[in-house]
Amino acid sequence: MENTIELKNVSYKRNQRVILENINLAVQKGTTIGLLGENGAGKTTLMRSIAGIAKGARGTIKIKNEAGIVERKALVSYTDSLDGFSRGTKIADIVEFYSLVYTDFSNDKYRELSDFLDFGSDQQKLGELSKGMKEKLVISLTLARRASVYLLDEPFEGIDSMTRKKIVNSLIQWKSSEAVMVISDHYITEIAGLLDEVAIIKDDKLIAQEKAEKIREQGKSIEDFYEGLYEKGVQTDDELSKNE
């Protein structure tokens, strides 16, 4: 099968610090993959590199075989936290901006999503939205694009469980079957059912990529798998310090 995302030896340095080290990742068409790791492990940087807004990443990043940054941006829909809009901006104006700027933005799809997620009138201002409502808006905007890859950067961070469930359902309902969806998070119970695969990132490296059902076939939950890998790392660190 065809790989929608293909990363080869991707490394990234910033502020004299390695943030990504030799990341190799291949994600097949239609896959929903969870990008798991602690805060600061490099999840956001990896997403920014794929989306083409982190500069100076080495290695090759291809989306549907396109390596060019502009081509990639056209194929990737990334959850922007909307910081570039002032607090007084009306939702309707943000939607207008998206539909002007992204040729694959579907106003119909946005309407369906926003009706389903139900965050109220589009005459509201950005500054008036609660965290949950703002996340719903971001999800609606991101999924309303007919993109090949959706990058959702911690969409459940600080969101109550009702809202989380609603968002999860919107992801199930509106992700097209060909598109790839990458969801980053540092805890996963709620989204475990959503994932085809998990990729675990730790200390700037991608330490595992595995099919979710394969993990369960071994009688382990994804959480066990994730925590197991994180703990194993701690042990080796201890062993290293013993040897010194």
Partner: peptide, 15 residues
């Protein structure tokens, strides 16, 4: 200047 450092604009697929 804000355009150059904001995701709002830099995510747009334009050269």
């Amino acid at each position: 200047e804000k355009v150059y450092t904001s995701n709002r604009y830099r995510l747009i697929p334009i050269s």
